[in-house]
Simulated assay, not measured.
Amino acid sequence: MQNADSADVSCEFGSTKYYALCGFGGILSCGLTHTAVVPLDLVKCRIQVDPDKYKSIGKGFSLTLKEDGARGLAKGWAPTFIGYSMQGLCKFGFYEMFKIFYSDMLGEENTYLWRTSLYLAASASAEFFADIALAPMEACKVRIQTCPGYANNLRQCAPKMFAEEGVWAFYKGVVPLWMRQIPYTMMKFACFERTVELLYKHVVPKPRADCTKAEQLIVTFTAGYIAGVFCAIVSHPADSVVSVLNKESGSTAVQVLKKLGPKGVWKGLVARIIMIGTLTALQWFIYDSVKVYFRLPRPPPPEMPESLKKKLGLTE
């Protein structure tokens, strides 16, 4: 992967400082956005684990307000913030690292030809580690949100889960998390990268280098939302399994999948599309804003290398 233009940047592309600031951007983008949509996430989880009671988004909100009050909609905010901040650190930091690592392995020509596969491989590799960081807090979040009376906050929930089930309570959902998050993240990054490329090529009337920072961030937000819709669809069945699995202490992923059935795994999809579409767009917007603020170097837009053009007979 080619280095970015060195003018007006705060660090070297691919340096330790570069990865650290990318990781910091990931913390903000994932931690803040997931915490902001905790009420919608809570209702979505309750629809998934108890669809007979929580029949729709509106019904879910009204019942939660009636039973728990306005504060009830914020249940699970602490494990959400901690868990997704850790996930964002690994997701974005490792993605940038693996993208450069795999690009160096492929070489300039193959990086261009196989760039979609590169995005998919780098994001899958990053999410593998990100989910290990997320799993404990995700387990606490779902238990707080979907088991009334079990625990009101993280301070009560984590010790209780450990006393009842040991360390396994926090990691039994890691495989379903991989099933949910790895396809989601692969779609999130690959779809975003290619959508940005297509927007600048076919929609934006001028090259990215000629766009203002504000214009670039608008493109980022648009591409992020488009990617988010696809992310929600491909990851929703596994998300349903994770929600039910973390609610029921004695179940396995296979048992939950059989229990939900082909239709049950799609319960709450509309809420998840709204949540993930908005979430993904805001995450990319925040992440890109951090890059702009700290003046991080960026690789140029994908262009066919001159050596490949010659091989293909595209130059005179």
Rank of each mutant, 00 (worst) to 15 (best):
A121W: 04
E193N: 11
V49D: 00
F162A: 07
A7I: 05
K206M: 12
A271L: 08
W168Q: 07
W114P: 06
S56Y: 13
T35A: 02
S289K: 06
A227I: 05
V244N: 10
C11F: 01
A163F: 08
S289W: 11
S123F: 07
S123Y: 08
L40D: 06
D68I: 02
T195G: 04
A36T: 05
F61E: 08
D41V: 15
T252S: 15
L63E: 08
A253S: 13
V167H: 12
Y112V: 08
S240T: 13
E197R: 08
N110R: 11
E127L: 04
V242E: 01
E165G: 02
E109C: 10
Q181S: 15
V290Y: 08
C191F: 14
V43N: 03
C231P: 09
L65R: 05
C157F: 14
G25V: 04
L282H: 01
L245W: 00
L257S: 13
P301Q: 08
T111F: 07
W77T: 02
A70K: 11
P183D: 10
L42A: 01
D8P: 09
Y119D: 05
Y112Q: 03
K201D: 02
T16Q: 06
R298I: 02
V234A: 11
R295E: 13
A70I: 14
R208V: 03
Y102A: 05
T280Q: 09
G224I: 02
G88V: 02
V196C: 06
S29N: 12
T146R: 04
G60L: 10
A232N: 01
I276W: 01
F92K: 09
S117T: 10
V204T: 04
F128L: 13
R115G: 00
S10K: 06
R194Y: 03
Q283P: 11
K17C: 05
L177E: 11
M186A: 05
P183L: 10
T278R: 11
L65D: 03
A78D: 07
T146A: 12
A70G: 06
G83T: 00
R115S: 03
E138F: 14
G76D: 12
S289M: 10
G173R: 09
G224P: 02
F221D: 00
D50Y: 06
G149R: 01
F94M: 09
A158D: 12
Y287W: 07
Q156A: 15
C11R: 04
E303D: 06
M97H: 07
V38R: 00
K59F: 04
A20S: 07
A163Q: 12
S240N: 09
Y184M: 12
N152L: 15
K160C: 00
A36K: 13
L217K: 12
S235K: 01
K53V: 03
K75W: 00
I144E: 07
T252P: 13
L154T: 15
K55A: 15
K267S: 13
L106Q: 10
E138S: 09
Y150C: 08
N152K: 14
M186K: 04
L199G: 04
L198E: 07
I144L: 08
A281E: 06
R180V: 03
E108T: 01
F294K: 04
K59Y: 09
Q48Y: 13
D41T: 11
E67D: 10
V229C: 14
Y200A: 07
Q87Y: 13
S62L: 08
P136L: 14
E303K: 07
P300C: 07
L42W: 00
N3R: 11
G107A: 09
E215S: 12
G93V: 04
L245C: 05
M187D: 00
S103N: 09
I182P: 10
V38S: 00
Y200I: 02
